[in-house]
């Protein structure tokens, strides 16, 4: 069962990577990048159960947090053209 889940995740991963490569807009890429991060978490969880070591599950939480940071940074950069954007300065 876990092998089937892992195979399905790999297919989804391939599709997400394909979208990240093809683009065409930045939003496609940002979304695909975020999806790859989420699928990496799923793969980590399923692989832990597949090899009989589900202790790796906790690391998935860290991955989730990191994934959020990366996507937020990309979106913030795209919106404001700067990471250290301060709404006070615009007034």
């Amino acid at each position: 069962m876990f092998a089937g889940a892992a195979a399905a995740i790999l297919v989804a991963l391939a599709l997400a990577v394909l979208r990240a490569i093809k683009g065409p807009t930045v939003f496609d890429r940002a979304l695909a990048g975020n999806t790859v991060g989420s699928l990496a978490i799923l793969l980590l969880a399923v692989f832990g159960f597949l090899t009989g070591r589900p202790e790796f599950l906790d690391i998935g939480i860290t991955y989730g947090l990191l994934n959020l940071i990366g996507t937020l940074a990309v979106l913030k950069f795209f919106r404001h053209g700067d990471l250290a954007y301060d709404p006070e300065e615009e007034r």
Binding site: A20, R29, G33, V36, G37, A40, F56, Y63, G70, F77
Partner: peptide
């Protein structure tokens, strides 16, 4: 597009992390 390169590099890192696991 350099922004695309940055996103693809992050995709690369997640794939690499999966390989490491």
């Amino acid at each position: 597009s350099l922004l695309g390169v940055v996103i693809l590099a992050s995709v690369y890192s997640f794939l690499m992390a999966s390989v490491m696991i």
